[in-house]
Design a protein around this nucleic acid. Structure first.
Lengths: 127, 127
DNA sequence: ACCAGTAGGTACCAATTCGTAACTTAGAGG
DNA sequence: CCTCTAAGTTACGAATTGGTACCTACTGGT
């Protein structure tokens, strides 16, 4: 975390920042989640599963993930081309952290929901 | 994600997506890191530490973090107003995960650097 | 002949994002 | 009286982003 005045843009420094920027790109979590739970998949298959994503975005995200070594791309130049994506070893290194994040996220969501309904009850009682 | 009428919002709702979207906002990791390592701080202090951030962004990020319950905002209406920010309990729940992420990020960075220099050496040897 | 599917690439377009600059409030110091 | 400060808020504007539409090449179905 360098202190002094720098055009921060490319003076990366925080390793968390880099990795989070990767994980959090538009559809990234959905893509990684699908690759993790459904295993190796073709482009179209993945696109259908991550419903709503455009081909452009999916391609771009997959290329980025490939560049970071999280995803492997296997290209078969058969006549309808067949491209298969899967998680690499490195991709699987995130399983643990992602699991914890998901767990925390769900817990917070539940806590917040409980708080909200509690407040709703109090409001009703106050009437 | 975005605008156009999505079927997605409530159907899948990856809890990780929510939490990552929070963590990854523009300056968020720097802010959380600073609050964690330097403890409770005033706005200006924080702004100086997270060098490069604009007041607008910092305010917006802090408000979001406050809304998510990760950060506490203590406002003293003294004449030059004094506003102090600190991590909440919930904010500290991320310490562990953030640490792991940072560790993984640094390891990957080191691995990549090693690979690059290895390749550089090979290139030189091939000449 | 025409359409669909496979895995994209490219051009364009609208919306969102983020930075900059100016304004605020009220007291303290000169 | 004038300016400075802290912690913002608001308005404006440029840049980035992500979607849509259209393009490739090839084959199998009707």
């Amino acid at each position: 975390m360098n202190a002094t005045a720098e055009p921060r843009k490319e003076s990366v420094s925080c390793p968390m920042d880099f990795i989070l920027r990767m994980l959090m790109g538009p559809w990234t979590t959905y893509i990684l989640y699908n690759l993790k739970t459904h295993g190796s998949q073709r482009f179209g298959e993945l696109k259908r599963r991550v419903s709503g994503v455009s081909a452009k975005m999916l391609t771009e995200r997959l290329r980025t993930l490939e560049g970071a070594g999280l995803v492997r791309r296997d290209y078969e130049a058969t006549i309808p081309p067949k491209v298969t994506y899967s998680l690499t070893e490195r991709g699987h290194e995130l399983d643990d952290v992602m699991g914890r994040l998901a767990e925390i996220g769900m817990r917070w969501e539940a806590e917040d929901a409980a708080l909200r309904s509690l407040r709703a009850v109090e409001l009703k009682a106050a009437e």
